[in-house]
């Protein structure tokens, strides 16, 4: 970079300037304005919902994972009845798609994709990353999961079953990654710092406490 200053330039999300709205933008705008005009919901309801959706981040999922690592009863409920388990932690699941939690173990490694679009456990992770929505990931992870995981820096022994889960319909899948070694006695808050977004999609493992 030729210049140097202390704020970030996000090369992946340039500020839009002078771009004409697409047909879909215009369609969305027309429908939105009609719904507001007909009092189906108010502009403030819409803003509130967008604000709430965008305010969820992988830190929320990380708290849930750290609690599951620390509390066996919570973990059992998270796997059998995720909605009740996370609502008890104060997360508002609403009528949104059902959540399913998949436990990764030493013998079975789940990796999640939505080959048809970009279905993602937004209720605990927020909006999906760009790579999750890319045709490259969506097309290749179902055909060559081991190759794709290797590109994420994740090597799995052939003895480990890799199970790709394609969220094609009404369910959203969150991976419960294995608790890293050498974390005995760590607090939930500390454990949560090891849980990254990517390990809850299944493309990698949680961080090690020595990193």
């Amino acid at each position: 970079m030729a210049h140097h200053h202390d704020h970030d330039h996000d090369d992946h999300a340039p500020i839009e300037e002078g771009k004409a709205p697409s047909e879909f933008d215009l369609l969305e705008q027309a429908i939105r304005e009609l719904l507001i005009e007909k009092n189906v919901f108010s502009a403030d309801d819409l803003r509130r919902q967008v604000d709430r959706t965008d305010s969820v981040s992988p830190a929320d999922g990380a708290k849930v994972v750290a609690k599951a690592w620390s509390d066996p009863a919570f973990k059992a409920q998270l796997l059998s009845d995720p909605k009740t388990a996370i609502e008890a932690l104060g997360y508002d699941v609403g009528p949104a798609p059902n959540l399913v939690v998949l436990e990764n173990t030493a013998a079975l490694h789940h990796v999640v994709v939505c080959t048809l679009c970009s279905c993602y456990p937004r209720v605990l992770l927020g909006p999906p990353p760009d790579w999750y929505k890319s045709k490259e990931y969506r097309g290749r992870v179902v055909i060559d999961p081991r190759g794709v995981l290797t590109e994420f820096g994740t090597q799995l022994d052939d003895a480990v079953e890799i199970k790709v889960v394609d969220s094609t319909a009404d369910m959203r899948y969150l991976v419960l990654p294995p608790r890293p070694a050498d974390t005995e006695g760590m607090s939930e808050e500390k454990l949560a710092t090891l849980v990254t977004r990517d390990c809850m999609v299944g493309v990698t493992f949680p961080d090690s406490p020595s990193n």
């Binding site: 081991r146 079953e161 199970k163 790709v164 394609d166």
Partner: peptide, 9 residues
């Protein structure tokens, strides 16, 4: 690996 699987709804 031969045991690898893919699941979908």
């Amino acid at each position: 690996a031969p045991g690898d699987t893919v699941s979908a709804d």
